[in-house]
Write a protein that binds this DNA or RNA. Structure first.
Lengths: 222, 222
DNA sequence: GCTTAGTTTCAAAAGTTATTGAAATTTCTA
DNA sequence: TAGAAATTTCAATAACTTTTGAAACTAAGC
């Protein structure tokens, strides 16, 4: 068995177990990843053989993948067969899936929370107050995640700067780990203070300073 | 039925359907959310009645919640009963879960990808090259997500600035949506250019400019 | 229009996960 | 220490999801 085949099998296995993240079944995920691992499209028979599945399972899964626009049918000339070509721009793919799932599944969660919170306000009991506080905390967390996803989906100067900052911070931390791991007191790590959501969400004029410095630098470089 | 009870039922239903995100079963998730909706801890009988479950199901689920440190057992004085108090600092809860799942599930994905990519390099076939490119794209995407999660878990000045930028960007976008939705040409939206991961990951001296402006502003304000 | 290659559909079967309830076990009190 | 309150465990059962394979259907070629 070739190296490609070995990696392919492991990749298909891995992607299959991640299927639930994408909102598709493991089988459907496995077909998509199998197609991704190839340089050419494949028809139903090839998929059946490659993944040892029934024709019916392949058909159902391919229909779902088409609905998600993860595969595209192509006619095989001189034959009645349809070959399936996977969507290969993975950034676009993931954007598409995140966008669809955000709209269908995640946004309704935020909406529900925002509906419930004022309803608990009008009930004056201590239990309602406790419950409401917890829903508010949860709403803050989910709203932060929503912000990150929105920027990922939409782009823009400030969002890009934010993401670059995050990447830099993670990189800086990794470098700090390496340097603090090489001395005699290697177990001692400087642990920054944990972020609080309320702090992150708060309007901050210092952030505006950083933003305008970045914009000025952008102008000067173009 | 009271307003609290109505919202509670909807919340428990919602949280139960989100259980898979946390890596726990719907039943286990429902118990946790039910406990969150109350101002006082509850014992096994109360949970059984409140959620209409068997004693066995409650016992198994509570064991799992304890393992995740989502609930804490408390002795009920004058009785042999144990009451369960939920962890209520939701930021900490989510951090804990994200950290555990990152270590157990998500980090191994990145590791696998980073193992496979060089293996495909030594196979000179066109198919290996195509497959390798796709694995590299995927690795980039997951590494970005990993960066964001790392910052969320660890904090730090640069990470905090990055998150604040993202929140600001999302807020700015929302404001832009509102203002562009109120004119006669309301269907016309300015769509910023989509972010590319390779761009975000690239070292950028302009980001350093923004960062030092922020640090300077921090010093001046303290 | 007929034939047939190829695909889709769906009920039955298979596989997986969740729940139950009673036996087993643990722990506390008198 | 015995008894019983309370919980845990786990095999059986129930519920849910996935897969199969053959009947039904579609579409292309002659």
């Amino acid at each position: 068995m070739s190296e490609v085949e070995t990696v392919r099998q492991a990749f298909v296995q891995l992607w299959g177990s991640m299927g639930h993240f994408w909102g598709i079944s493991p089988t459907t995920a496995r077909i998509y990843s199998w197609l991704l691992s190839r340089s050419e499209p494949a028809d139903t028979d090839e998929i059946m053989e490659g993944l040892e599945m029934s024709r019916g399972a392949v058909s159902m899964a391919c229909r779902e993948l088409r609905e998600w626009q993860l595969i595209f049918p192509e006619k095989v000339s001189g034959s009645r067969r349809v070959a399936y070509r996977p969507a290969t721009d993975l950034e676009k793919v993931i954007r598409n899936i995140v966008e669809i799932r955000k709209r269908r599944e995640w946004d309704p969660i935020l909406e529900s929370l925002r509906e419930w919170i004022p309803r608990l306000e009008s009930d004056g009991s201590p239990e309602a107050a406790v419950f409401r506080q917890r829903l508010e905390d949860l709403e803050s967390l989910i709203a932060l995640t929503d912000s990150i996803v929105k920027v990922f989906l939409r782009g823009g100067v400030v969002g890009k700067l934010g993401l670059k900052m995050l990447v830099k911070a993670a990189r800086d931390d990794a470098a700090l780990d390496v340097s603090s791991g090489s001395g005699p007191g290697a177990e001692v790590k400087i642990q920054p203070e944990a972020l609080r959501i309320s702090d992150i969400q708060q309007h901050d004029s210092l952030v505006a300073r950083a933003e305008s410095a970045y914009r000025k630098a952008l102008e000067e470089s173009s």
